[in-house]
């Protein structure tokens, strides 16, 4: 009896400790978001003096001002367009390439895969100048297609690596079954391998969507027309060389993070279901 009580107390304390730790981690993750929203509701003067998380007199109009002054309308459309297009391109190309690297035998297979891995090691700023010169030569500077191709190129290496690793671990029996049923190589990839790779695809989508949504430096390098710029360009309006309009900047950041949080929440459900499906299958 006494042992059972002791065990229960020990269990309770252990669980409480874990939950307390998780609560603290959650608060530390959520606090910056709350601070951002709180600052978005202050004025340029009170943002430095009013230390409350939410001001007594919230300035909701900051969101409207940020949207209008930052020219978020066109930038928002551009960012959505680039994100969807680039992610679709990366998923399509990288899944095909990764499947080929995993299942097909062709000369120079290891060399090409190694080249993709090496490309992962080159930081984006390191490739700015050659990329810009290449785009100029191809007459793709200041075009949407130039930016989309460049961003697809940026995301391919890691995506191919992730998907190839996943395909390597998939059992070949299902593919053999597909082959017996008369599926071509592409049919096996499309009907068998790709649906099974849903968890890895979800990771690829989230990772690349975040990357494209938050990207600004490459866009600034490639575009000269404001009307082609992504959402991050709108945020720059509030950051001068010496003066930053913090409330408007925070309002702008709140607007920009909302869609990506929604995508993340939506895709997170898919990851969990994909992982669960994988566990049941295993």
């Amino acid at each position: 009896m006494r042992d059972s009580v002791k065990r229960k107390i020990k269990n309770f304390l252990g669980q409480s400790g874990i939950h307390l730790f998780l609560i603290l981690v959650s608060v530390s993750c959520i606090f910056p978001l709350l601070w951002m929203i709180g600052s978005a509701l202050k004025t340029q003067q009170t943002v430095f003096s009013d230390m409350r998380l939410f001001p007594a007199q919230p300035h909701w109009e900051n969101f409207y001002t940020a949207w209008v002054e930052g020219g978020f309308g066109i930038y928002f459309f551009n960012s959505v367009f680039y994100t969807v297009t680039v992610v679709a391109g990366i998923v399509f190309i990288s899944s095909l390439a990764a499947y080929a690297f995993s299942r097909l035998e062709f000369p120079g297979k290891n060399f090409f895969f190694l080249m993709f891995l090496v490309a992962m090691m080159i930081p984006l700023p390191g490739s700015f100048v050659p990329l810009y010169v290449l785009l100029v030569k191809l007459h793709l500077v200041n075009t949407r297609i130039g930016y989309i191709l460049a961003m697809i190129n940026v995301g391919l290496s890691l995506s191919i690596f992730l998907l190839k690793t996943f395909f390597d671990k998939l059992p070949k029996d299902l593919e053999d079954a597909g082959r017996i049923d008369g599926c071509s190589k592409f049919g096996i990839y499309w009907h068998v391998a790709l649906p099974m790779a849903r968890p890895a695809l979800a990771v690829v989508i989230i990772f690349n969507a975040l990357n494209v949504w938050n990207e600004y430096i490459l866009a600034m390098l490639i575009f000269s027309s404001k009307s082609l710029m992504p959402l991050q360009r709108g945020l720059m309006v509030f950051q001068g060389a010496h003066i930053t309009q913090y409330p408007l900047l925070m309002a702008g950041i709140t607007i920009t993070v909302l869609p990506i949080i929604l995508i993340y929440l939506f895709m997170q459900r898919h990851i969990i279901s994909g992982l669960t499906a994988g566990a049941i299958r295993g």
Binding site: V84, T85, I145, G187
Partner: peptide
């Protein structure tokens, strides 16, 4: 691959990429 182009999902993806390419091809 042509056989599978009739597949709804692949058709949607390829069409989207083609439309996007057309839309984005024009320089500002």
């Amino acid at each position: 691959i042509f056989k599978h182009l009739l597949d709804k999902r692949l058709l949607t993806l390829v069409s989207f990429l083609l439309i996007a390419a057309c839309l984005s091809g024009c320089a500002e």
